[in-house]
Each structure stands twice: as C-alpha cells, then as structure tokens.
C-alpha cells in the first residue's frame, strides 16, 4: 500500500519524457545561439522542467510523499481560485473551512477510505460551507458565494484528488503497470492533447469552435488534437494501462474531447472574471489552474472508466 509500484514500462516512459525535454532544451539553446527569439519558449521550458521534476519527486518515493505533494498542489490551486474570484468579507470563516478540507480529504486518500473520498467534498463540504456562512449571517450574495466556493472545492480538491485515487482503488483485475502507469498515461495524454490542439490550431486554425469563449480555439486544432491523441494512445494505452490498443484509441479520443471541455470551461471562467491567466506561479504558463484545466476533466473520468470496466 505504501510502496508505489514502478514497472519497466513506467520507467521507460519517464526516460522518454526526460529525453524529449532534454532535446527541446538543446534545440532552444541552439536556436538562441543563432540569434532567434526564443525567450518565451525558454521560460516555458524552464517551468516545464520544474513541473516534471516536482512530479518525479512526488511519485518516486512512497505514497506519503505523493499524497503530501499533491495535497500541496491542490492547496496552491484552491488559493489561486479564491484569490481570483470576488469574495465577501463575511466568507472568511467559510473559506477557512474550505482550506481545512484539503488535509482531511488527502488523509482519507492516504488511509485508503475511498467512500469518504467520494463524499467529503460533494456532500459534507457542500453542507458545511453554506451552514458556516449562514451562522455568520450575511445574506447579500449568499447563493453566489456558496456556489462559487463549492465550485472551487470540486475543481481544486475533489477533481485533482483523483490523481491519487488510482493508488487506493482495489482493482480486482490487477493493473499491469500499477496505478502509476494509469496516472502517467492520463498525465501524458492530457499534456500531449493540449500541445497538439495548440500546434494544429496555430498551423491550420481557421474556424473558431467557441468564438465567444476563445477565438484561438478552432475546429482544425480540435480535430487535429483529438486524432493525434487517439493515435498516441494506440501505443501508450497498452504500454501503461490494462487497455488494449483498439480500446486505447477510442478512450484516447474520448479523453481528448474531455480535455478540450476542461480547457474551455476554465477559459469561460477567466473570460467571466476578465483575466488572462489564473495566476503567475508558473512563468510562461500562467497559473496552476491554467495548467490543470484539462486534467480536472480527464483524471476523474478515466478513473471511473477503468473502475467500471476493470473492477
């Protein structure tokens, strides 16, 4: 339980990731030597290295490290969310309890109490937050505050917590490459999808898919991203998860679509608040929520997919 199973395939996939990053770093420095303007790319790359190293540490030791570091990410995300939305002075107590739910939620993950993981945020915090606010007694904008605090908890604590949930689910058919295989599969696929949608959108993008939310998201980018994610999943799914290649292709396409939905949901929120990025903690990328927007859709959905079909 406390040990994280690291199989050959998992290790290979991490080496590949590091090889790609190293290659990109050399490429960027090479271009810099030729006096090309790669400053922004370098900043993004540097942040990307930091994220990858952070996650490598999170998954390399034991489950305690994983839980603690992911709880910390969840905390940073929630803090970012509460800092960008308007909050009332009267909400301070409720926000305090919202923050406290993070250690509790991740403790339940640590002891492997899956049912409590499912219930804490959607049920107990759903009841606690408005109750605490009602005791304070400020009724102006009550519903708005309840709803927005709970939305943040669902995104930053509940959905992100699913990254850890793979480790505590008792699959009857054992996962061939461990829970870590599935987690890495979902992380790689989500990042790859974001990247490919961007690349295809940038190269061929013409027809806006959601003109009101973001003019940069196009049908060309969406279709190119979804298809290439499906194709990479053809190989990655059997390599890291119990899925077969054909199933992997279909699931990859499904996850790419869900990742896209997560992306436009976060974009809509940003548009509503009138901001460009959710934060500044990841130079070149924006905030944490900018980075995990697709993951909040893909991680829970893939978890329930394999729980349903492989349990």
């Amino acid at each position: 339980m406390n040990e994280i199973l690291v199989t050959e395939h998992v290790r290979y996939s991490v080496w590949i990731l590091y090889a790609i990053l190293t290659f990109l770093t050399f490429l960027a420095f090479g271009m810099k030597l030729r006096k090309k303007n790669v400053e922004n790319f370098l900043i993004r790359l540097k942040t990307f290295w930091k994220i990858v190293i952070f996650l490598t540490i999170a998954f390399s030791f034991n489950f305690v490290t994983t839980v603690v570091l992911l709880a910390f990410i969840s905390y940073l995300a929630l803090k970012e969310y509460f800092s960008m939305i308007p909050t009332r002075h009267a909400d301070r107590r409720a926000l305090f309890w919202a923050y406290l739910s993070i250690p509790v939620q991740f403790y339940f993950i640590y002891i492997g109490w899956l049912n409590m993981f499912y219930l804490l945020i959607p049920l107990y915090l759903f009841l606690l937050v408005p109750a605490r606010m009602a005791i304070v007694g400020e009724t102006k904008d009550f519903l708005k505050s309840c709803a927005s605090i709970h939305w943040g908890l669902m995104v930053c604590v509940y959905a992100l917590g699913y990254v850890c949930a793979y480790f505590i689910q008792d699959f009857k058919v054992p996962l061939p490459h461990g829970a870590l295989g599935c987690v890495l599969y979902i992380l790689y696929l989500t990042i790859f999808n974001d990247f490919m949608q961007y690349v295809f959108g940038k190269s061929f993008g013409k027809h806006a898919i959601t003109p009101k939310v973001s003019p940069h998201k196009t049908w060309e980018g969406f279709i190119g991203g979804v298809l290439s994610t499906g194709l990479i999943s053809l190989w990655a799914a059997p390599f890291l998860t119990p899925l077969s290649a054909g199933e992997g292709f279909i699931v990859g396409i499904g996850l790419a679509c869900c990742g896209f939905l997560g992306d436009i949901v976060m974009s809509s929120l940003k548009r509503d608040l009138g901001i460009k990025d959710t934060g500044t903690i990841l130079p070149g990328h924006g905030g944490i929520l900018d980075r995990v927007d697709s993951l909040i859709f893909t991680a829970p959905l893939f978890f329930h997919y394999i729980s349903y079909f492989y349990d």
């Binding site: 800092s83 301070r92 107590r93 926000l95 305090f96 923050y99």
Partner: peptide, 18 residues
C-alpha cells in the same frame, strides 16, 4: 492587494490569499 483579505484589521484568523 490581498493582505487585507488574508489578515484584515481587527481579525484573528488568517485566511490564505495570493
């Protein structure tokens, strides 16, 4: 901006904000 949300005047509890 933000410190007055984290720890306002005459308030005992600290609530994190960026």
């Amino acid at each position: 901006h933000g410190t007055e949300k984290s720890l306002p005047k005459n308030e005992g509890i600290f609530v994190p904000f960026i």
